[in-house]
Amino acid sequence: MYATGTPDLMSNLRSARLLAQVQTDFARASEEVTTGRKADVIEASGGDPIKLYALERELALNAERAISIDVAIGRIGATQTALERLQNATGTVGVRLAAAVSIGDVASAEQEAGAARGAFEEAVSALNTRFGDRMLFSGAATDGAALAPGDEILAQIAARVAPATDAAGAIAAVDDYFSDPAGFAATGYLGSLTDAAAAEVETGQRVDFALRADREEIVQALTALALGVIGVEGGYPGATNENRMIVMGEAAQRGLSAIDEVVSLRGEIGIAEARLETAKIRISSERTFLQESRNAVIAKDPFEAAVAFTSLETQLETILSVTARLSSLNLTNFL
């Protein structure tokens, strides 16, 4: 009888190598079926992956820009909402107050202006709007409130108005608070004198929509509301009905003008908002192009992937069946 140990050993080694190769190929085919991408990107790129890596880098930058634009769109939307609240609050000392003053109806004027204090505090609340972790109207100081509490600002104004002996003096005192560097600029506005950074939508292209609560149009609205408060509450020696009506009339006229200014401001923000939406569409189109370019290099044809997977699955099943008596392997155990 001839010994057969060596041939059997060599046969087993060949079988083991074949099994290992088929297992490797099967794992790769399984990955390609699952991901829809070629497993070997170097081979897929023809041995020169530089272009592929460049596409991947551009896709990563595109994703960063998309996030930045989405955040900016959220911020500008919140800014529009805040300005709408400011506009509505300013309307408290608008048309109806002007009508009541024009006919000399003290009771109606007092009723219309009676909501001025609450409207002033609402305006301050709107200007202290936060989006995410940043304040919208504080300039570069995005981590702090833009304005002091409304009641504190009104108390500071009342202190300046207190010595007034007539309507002209009361109006001048309110104006003085908002124009004096030691007044509103020092104790009312708490933000930075530097604007917040503009939103970058593309390398070298920015959309600037950040507003500060000390902007002239906004200060005009706050001044009108403050005059409405002084007009209805008085708080100075010369606060006769006649003088109070004069102050309320001034509040109404300035309120009407301030509403127009805020509407114009919202229009400017709307233009910036449209630019951001356009940038979002452009970024989305760019992402589609980059993805298609990348897929042209690494995408695996689904039909080819399925055929390869099925063929290797059959080969693996056959090999495992042949060696089952020695290794007790089967496809279920392998998987």
Rank of each mutant, 00 (worst) to 15 (best):
S192Y: 01
L335T: 14
A172K: 07
A60E: 02
A196W: 00
E286A: 12
A66Q: 04
I42N: 12
L19Q: 13
E242W: 06
S138A: 04
E286W: 06
R287H: 08
I67L: 15
G94S: 13
R282D: 04
S108G: 14
A213S: 03
I218T: 05
P7H: 02
S285Y: 15
Y177F: 13
T90F: 05
G104S: 05
T240D: 04
R206C: 09
A252R: 00
L52R: 13
A141R: 04
A299W: 03
G91P: 09
E112D: 01
E84L: 03
R325E: 05
E216C: 01
G74C: 14
S11Q: 10
A199D: 02
T79W: 01
G231C: 12
M10L: 13
L13Q: 11
R134V: 00
D133Y: 12
E32G: 02
T314P: 06
R17M: 09
G204W: 12
R160L: 11
V41H: 03
A159L: 00
R28I: 04
S11W: 13
E304R: 07
A305G: 03
N243F: 03
N241H: 05
L211M: 06
V41P: 00
T240K: 06
S30Q: 06
A107V: 14
L227W: 00
V22M: 10
V22A: 11
I281L: 15
A158K: 05
T24K: 04
A98H: 02
A113K: 13
A199S: 08
T240R: 05
S327Q: 07
E250Y: 07
E317Q: 06
V22F: 14
D25M: 06
V124K: 05
A72M: 11
E31P: 03
D195A: 12
T165C: 09
Y53K: 09
E64D: 08
L331P: 12
L154M: 07
M248L: 12
A44S: 11
V322M: 09
K300L: 03
A82P: 02
Q253S: 11
P302L: 15
Y177H: 05
T90A: 04
E268D: 13
A145W: 15
A306E: 08
G191I: 04
L9V: 07
A100N: 10
D195R: 09
Y189T: 13
T203H: 00
L190Q: 08
K280F: 07
G249M: 01
F137N: 13
A20H: 11
G255S: 02
